[in-house]
């Protein structure tokens, strides 16, 4: 079954506590903002293909915090080789979740490679991820939310979602400010040291 993206993200971000979230550009950035914009969100407005590696940088710098990357299938395909790089590092506090609607929603709903055979969880497994799954049920999303918080190992999940468009919930778009907001939240006074 294909799931509703906003319900999926709301479930993943339930009682999020210390969770740091990076969202890939486009709909995923709007999704995490709809669930509640906070200093521990870093919604990308550009840098397509960067989301997973931004997550790796955060996971290595903040090993005690769970770090969650939420991105789209098109964005993940563009940064696909970063899955190999991340698997080599194997941070136990990093989870990468792809909201897979099998299309480029922002640009006119053109089909992505996941609509035509590419299986991102198989690619993640092939790169060395211990945990990689395809999720089609809300119950599994709730389980995933718990394992993310447990920092129970490097994890990849593709959640199949419907291609429905939602009204854009726009986060702040000043990148320097978003960066500083998160650094202050994570580092306190050291952010300016």
């Amino acid at each position: 079954m294909k799931l509703d993206r906003r319900k999926v993200v709301a479930e993943l971000l339930t009682e999020r506590g210390a969770l740091v979230v990076v969202a890939g550009l486009g709909a995923c950035a709007w999704d995490i903002t709809a669930a509640g914009d906070t200093a521990l969100n870093f919604p990308l407005w550009g840098g397509m293909g960067a989301a997973a590696m931004v997550g790796l940088g955060l996971a290595l710098a903040q090993p005690r915090r769970p770090v969650l990357v939420i991105t789209g299938d098109g964005e993940m395909l563009m940064g696909m080789s970063s899955l190999a790089t991340i698997a080599v590092q194997r941070p136990d506090n990093l989870s990468i979740v792809v909201l897979d609607n099998e299309q480029y929603g922002e640009t006119g709903h053109q089909a992505t490679h996941t609509a035509m055979g590419a299986e991102l969880p198989a690619i993640a497994r092939g790169c060395g991820f211990d945990h990689a799954s395809t999720i089609t049920k809300m119950g599994a999303v709730a389980e995933l939310r718990n394992t993310i918080h447990d920092r129970a190992g490097l994890r990849f999940a593709a959640i199949k979602i419907t291609p429905a468009d939602y009204p854009k919930a726009l986060p702040p778009r000043d990148g320097a400010w978003l960066k500083h907001r998160m650094r202050v939240a994570l580092l306190g006074e050291q952010a300016h040291a």
Partner: peptide
């Protein structure tokens, strides 16, 4: 991208 995430953290 790694540099960006690392600096954030």
């Amino acid at each position: 991208a790694l540099a960006t995430g690392a600096w954030l953290g």
